[in-house]
């Protein structure tokens, strides 16, 4: 295993709130350059997980390490831009003063403040007090603070929370731009389309347990279902059963319906059939959306 590439390693992390188990023995590994989505319904343990790795909550059991360094230190967090739950700042200070405090903590110069305010379209409000901001603006300031110092790692917990559709689109663009720059992103969300659009990898959580984890395509491909037919459906079905292209095949309304094996695509199936002298007359991918898979998983 290449440890230098591992940004975050979570091992057997558990945390309970009284009798409720928020996360149970969660293990994850996130590598440099990944856009990692933490997907799950409300109460699945996303925020608990992020709070622990951000140092604001103590785990009951298990460990985690940033950059392959044990144990985690506050110093490491200065290299990470985080937004956990709602952003909290000093209500009586201006945006600029609030960001100055973050600059001091991260030990960087004040000259980055204008850039991040520009990027989150808050420049005009630079001298306003934090308490005068709207909910959406507060959220954007949280993102601005996370971007201060241009950190290589971003940890965002529901960054589009409380934003209007326009705001959501803007934040998504900002985050996507960061991902395109090659930054590592850890994004918690219960919005599937968000994860699908932004992330390269995804972990699905439910009741604090990891249900599935892998690249977004992998998880999608796992469940890729293809319907097809040819002149001799039953013969093709028999051959396919013994191949490693499909997991299983069934007959449905005179069509064959197959679930593809991981990594296989409908073209592989077509090619296989052609090589075995079957001419496929009908082929349609019933690619399950992440949403369908997600709902199935968390059911």
């Amino acid at each position: 295993m290449n440890t230098t590439n591992t940004i975050l390693e979570i091992r057997q992390l558990s945390r309970s709130y009284r009798s409720v188990k928020a996360i149970r023995e969660l293990s994850l590994s996130i590598n440099a350059g990944q856009a990692f989505g933490l997907l799950g319904p409300n109460g699945s343990g996303k925020t608990t997980t992020l709070s622990i790795i951000a140092g604001i909550l103590k785990q009951d059991a298990g460990t985690y390490s940033w950059f392959g360094e044990d144990p985690p230190t506050p110093q490491q967090r200065t290299k990470i831009g985080s937004l956990i739950e709602n952003p909290h700042f000093y209500p009586y200070l201006t945006l600029e003063q609030n960001l100055k405090i973050i600059c001091e903590i991260k030990q960087i110069g004040y000259n980055d403040i204008d850039r991040v305010l520009e990027e989150t379209k808050l420049s005009e409000r630079k001298k306003s007090r934090f308490k005068t901001l709207s909910l959406g603006m507060k959220q954007r300031l949280g993102i601005a603070a996370a971007l201060l110092g241009d950190p290589q790692i971003l940890v965002l917990d529901e960054p589009t929370n409380g934003l209007d559709p326009e705001g959501i689109a803007e934040v998504r663009d900002t985050v996507m731009a960061q991902v395109e720059k090659g930054k590592t992103l850890i994004l918690a969300s219960h919005i599937l389309s968000e994860v699908e659009k932004i992330c390269s990898h995804v972990a699905i959580l439910k009741n604090g347990e990891l249900l599935a984890s892998g690249s977004v395509e992998e998880i999608l491909a796992e469940e890729e279902v293809v319907e097809f037919s040819c002149a001799e459906n039953e013969k093709l079905k028999a051959i396919l059963q013994n191949s490693d292209i499909v997991l299983h095949t069934r007959t449905e309304n005179g069509l064959l319906v197959a679930t593809l094996a991981p990594g296989m695509q409908s073209s592989d199936l077509n090619k296989f059939a052609f090589e075995n002298l079957f001419v496929i007359t009908h082929l349609r991918s019933r690619k399950k959306s992440l949403e369908a898979h997600f709902l199935e998983l968390v059911k």
Binding site: I56, T73, R77, H88, F89, I105, A145
Partner: peptide
């Protein structure tokens, strides 16, 4: 009450600090 201790820890201060 402003949850700013939390913010400062997230951005890299230790609890002792």
């Amino acid at each position: 009450t402003n949850h700013t201790f939390k913010t400062q820890v997230i951005f890299g201060l230790g609890r002792a600090e």
